[in-house]
Amino acid sequence: MAISLTCPSCGNIINQVTRSPQMVVCPACNSTHLLTNGKMEDVGKSAILTDVPSIFEMYKTYKYTDWKFTPVGRVRYDYGDGYWDEWFVRSDNGKETWVSVDEGDIAIEHLVQKQLSLPTFDEIKVGGALMINRIRMTVVEKNTATMVGAQGEVPFKIVPNETYNYIDLLGPKRTAFTIEYQDGGIDCYKGIWVDPFEIVEV
């Protein structure tokens, strides 16, 4: 059920639809707010994300096989050669997850383990193999990302221009893993790669 919040900057009514967003970006004035105990604290302006066509639009509902989801937030990262969007989506059953979109490359992922015993970022090689949860995965990308900005609701504090290292992995049956090396820790996201032609707007 949506909770109505009032933007402290412009007074716009924002309908909060996810359970526990940490950050809410006002769609009217683009002010970024830290949400604590139901109160919004203005922490500045988020970068206005260039409105380029994407397979998703905020608050529209989409279907992949029999899974329905609605994008309610978006974080954009720059990886030098381009950018990708991480869409924060809410499922029909209320579960929240991430869908990353880089032109036609789409992966649905969720955080599975905060800490994993993996080689350091420098030791990883593109094309090499890693065993994660007994699944043999191939490293398909190794890069550094810079946060550009955000839109809507996101479950963590966004810090534009913050950078982190990541690797993308591909495994059997479209299995996708993204390993993020950040603040000395490792976050592991597991999911699947999705064919964009299999996603339909409901």
Binding site: V52, P53, S54, I55, E103, G104, D105, L170, P172, K173, R174, A176, W193, D195, P196, F197
Partner: peptide
């Protein structure tokens, strides 16, 4: 190219057309 669906190949041979796109299905 499509900004929403990325890149596809349209192969043309002897008047026949095939639309291909990269997948992760092995």
């Amino acid at each position: 190219f499509s900004p929403t669906h990325g890149y596809v190949w349209l192969v043309y041979e002897d008047g026949h057309w095939v639309m291909l796109h990269e997948v992760k299905d092995l």
